[in-house]
Structure formats: structure tokens, C-alpha cells
Design a protein around this nucleic acid. Structure first.
Lengths: 123, 123
DNA sequence: CAGGATCCTTTACGATACTG
DNA sequence: CAGTATCGTAAAGGATCCTG
């Protein structure tokens, strides 16, 4: 008798697909990778720092994405008690585990540029 | 004299960010990773195969995403001359270079599940 | 079988202005 | 400084039906 796919007999490839969905849903959107990448490089950045570092992002998106990331424990948010308050954002230890993912993505993107460049050159 | 950021003096981190953008724009959307992942596993799949393998996708999205991927040389599309025509989709050599990227993403997603599970267990 | 056409809903994203 | 509120556009995604 055929069973429907349930957890305990889910094929390996479906677990992989599930895992990919999980990762991508957490890192969805136009900016999450940028934010995390930026925070992995220079740790402890203020809201304005990020706004400057991440080219093109606006306050609304930045604030929203940071909240998402904080909710998923990927970034820390620390409010400093300065005259006008400031906030320090930093990557969490857990968020730092994304480094290999981001590295692969960046690496591939760089190779991609090269391949485009070569293709253009040959034309 | 200060120059605006042009290719030849772009800081390394901006090149990285650019690269991340490139990769993600090619792999944007809800399905591209799934499609590529599926094609990397089982090579040579028909449209219907993919429709079955990729849980939840519809014909419109599948067709559109496949076109995008084909345009970017990541998948091959081969029309077979059978009675009702059939089409064989497969990953290109170039598309296969995405394997490490996808592996990292899948790996991270699996660890993520574990960490969630543990967190729930401790509650 | 493979997919295009159509219609519709939802989400993402962005600009601007405003507040503690 | 660090955001929130509001408004508006555009893109993504989905359901269904249709065709060579």
C-alpha cells in the first residue's frame, strides 16, 4: 500500500528541497544578503551606517529587514543610551554561520561576471 | 581628486555586494533554486516531471522560470519529436557550477531546522 | 504533452513626510 | 539618530481555461 509522503519516509531530496525553502524564506527579499554580508564584514554598525553602506536601500526597507533578521536571531540589536539614542547592529554567532553560504553566492556571482565579460569579448 | 565609484576603483566589498546581487537576481523568485536543484539531481526531466517533482508550482510559473533559466544558460531545453511533442530539460554544464551554492544553502537550512527543533525541545 | 493567455490577489518595494 | 506612517506602483505569484 502506497503511503503519502510523511516526515518519516520523506525522500532525501525532499528534505533538501525543504531545507532550501527554509533558507530562502529567511533570506528572501532584495536586501537580506546585503545586510548580513555587510554586518559580517564590519561588525557593530548603526542604522545610518547601514543606510550608507547598503546602496539604494531606504529607511523603511532597512528597518523592516533588520526586524526580520533580528526575529530569526541572525542579527543583534543593541540600543545605546546616548543623547539622541543610537543603535548598534551586529551579526549574531548564529548569523555568522551564513558566511559560507554568502561566500559561495559571491564567488559564483564573480565567476558569472567573468563569463559574461568573455562572452561579450568574443562577439 | 575624488572619483565616483567606477569599475576600476570599486572597493572589494562592493564587488562582493555586486556579485551577490548578480547571483540573486538570476536566481530570484520562489522556484529557481528548486528547479535547478531538481535538475542537478535527476537529469533529463520533462515538463510534467518537473511539475510533479516541484511541489506546489503551477504551469505558468514553471514555464516562466524555465525560460529565465534557459536564457541564462543554466538549463537546456530539448524538444523531442514524439507523437505529442515532449521536452527534455536538463542542467547545463554551467548551471551545474551552482551545485556548491545550492549545497551550502541546503546545508544551512538543515542545520537551521535542527536548531529550531532543539529550541522547541528546551522550552 | 507543453505551455500560452487571461484575470486576479498579494506581496514587495520605494518616496516622502513625520516623531520621540 | 532611529525609526514609523502613509501612500502609491510594480512585480510576483496563482487559478483556470485554452491550444497545437
Amino acid at each position: 500500500m502506497k503511503k503519502k509522503s510523511v516526515i518519516n519516509d520523506t525522500p532525501v531530496c525532499q528534505i533538501r528541497m525543504q531545507a532550501i525553502s527554509d533558507t530562502m524564506s529567511i533570506l528572501s527579499g532584495k536586501w537580506k544578503f546585503h545586510i548580513i554580508g555587510t554586518l559580517i564584514e564590519g561588525n557593530k554598525l548603526g542604522f545610518m551606517d547601514l543606510l550608507r553602506e547598503i546602496d539604494g536601500i531606504g529607511t523603511k526597507m532597512l528597518s523592516k529587514e533588520l526586524q526580520d533578521l533580528e526575529m530569526n536571531q541572525l542579527v543583534n540589536r543593541k540600543v545605546m543610551d546616548t543623547k539622541p539614542i543610537t543603535v548598534e547592529y551586529s551579526i549574531t554567532e548564529y548569523g555568522a554561520t551564513l558566511a559560507p553560504v554568502i561566500n559561495e553566492i559571491a564567488k559564483w556571482g564573480i565567476e558569472y561576471r567573468k563569463s559574461i565579460f568573455e562572452a561579450d569579448g568574443e562577439q
